[in-house]
């Protein structure tokens, strides 16, 4: 009986997964068709920030009433976010950050981030997040952290025995908490929110983490002032996909259109070097 119950839940789960993927692709296709036909008619509302599918964001009209600015303006050709009317829309405080007592310490007093949790497909399938399935009963907690072939989540990790991160030295449960799947976990077993991936990535990628804290690596928008100004920081997973870093470090992006050619010029073949 219990077994049957479990099976039915998994089936429902898988079906809903397909449904969501299907809806997503349908939406992308219709948006592309619309762009090609009516380029100037209306603004693009479904946009992405760094790469497609990593950080989607939708346009709010009149987000800054003083000037009638929308929250964002997006490219009509690619759907990428080009311009921020309100750089802090939908942000939350970055949260407590560990202090590093040297000159590389970051200033996080006025740091805000966009939460990552709303962008996680499986996290948003049920009311309890990942615990909807990973409650210890429907899917029992694993006894050890040994790599094994997963029967789920192939959309995230195609072949779990060939996880494209750490070249064989890293397994899912080195970063995901085995007992609370709604959280990440560092090497000491501290639970870390999905909204603060920098705290776990930085444990191995220390050099990049120090650069990120200093404001050199990564992206910060809003105020330029190093003290006092409110700044929106990008966190690691807004640009990097930790599950595919080895094979597919970054998805290529479609560039925005080139400038118009100087008057009277038919093509830009004069730019080609003779060695090509």
């Amino acid at each position: 009986m219990i077994c049957l119950h479990k099976a039915s839940r998994i089936v429902v789960f898988a079906l809903s997964g397909f449904l969501i993927v299907g809806m997503g692709s349908c939406k992308v296709a219709s948006a592309a068709g619309e762009n090609a036909e009516t380029q100037t008619a209306k603004p693009v509302t479904d946009c992405y920030e760094s790469r497609e599918d990593y950080a989607t964001v939708s346009r709010t009209e009149n987000a800054v009433p003083e000037y009638g600015f929308p929250s964002i303006k997006c490219s009509k050709t690619t759907g990428a976010v080009l311009w921020y009317g309100d750089p802090y829309e939908g942000t939350i405080p970055m949260g407590a950050m560990p202090e590093i007592k040297d000159q590389t310490h970051g200033n996080f007093a006025n740091a805000v981030v966009k939460p990552r949790e709303p962008h996680l497909t499986y996290f948003n399938l049920g009311p309890n997040g990942c615990k909807t399935c990973h409650d210890g009963k429907t899917v029992p907690n694993p006894k050890d952290g040994k790599p094994r072939l997963l029967s789920m989540h192939q959309d995230i990790v195609e072949n779990s025995l060939e996880l494209q991160h750490g070249r064989g030295a890293v397994w899912c449960l080195d970063c995901h908490s085995p007992t609370n799947r709604n959280k990440l976990m560092n090497r000491r077993g501290d639970k870390i929110s999905f909204n603060q991936p920098q705290r776990i990535c930085g444990e191995c990628h220390g050099e990049k983490y120090i650069d990120w804290r200093a404001g050199i690596h990564g992206k910060i928008i809003g105020s330029w002032a190093s003290d006092g100004g409110k700044r929106r920081w990008w966190v690691c997973t807004e640009c990097h996909n930790p599950h595919t870093v080895q094979k597919n470090r970054f998805n290529p992006v479609k560039p925005e259109p080139p400038p118009p050619l100087p008057r009277g010029m038919k093509n830009a073949s004069h730019e080609r070097s003779e060695t090509e």
Binding site: P252, K254, P255, P257, R272, T275, E276
Partner: peptide, 10 residues
């Protein structure tokens, strides 16, 4: 050989 008018797909 620098190009400013490049039109690449990706």
């Amino acid at each position: 050989g620098a190009q400013s008018y490049y039109q690449d797909e990706a």
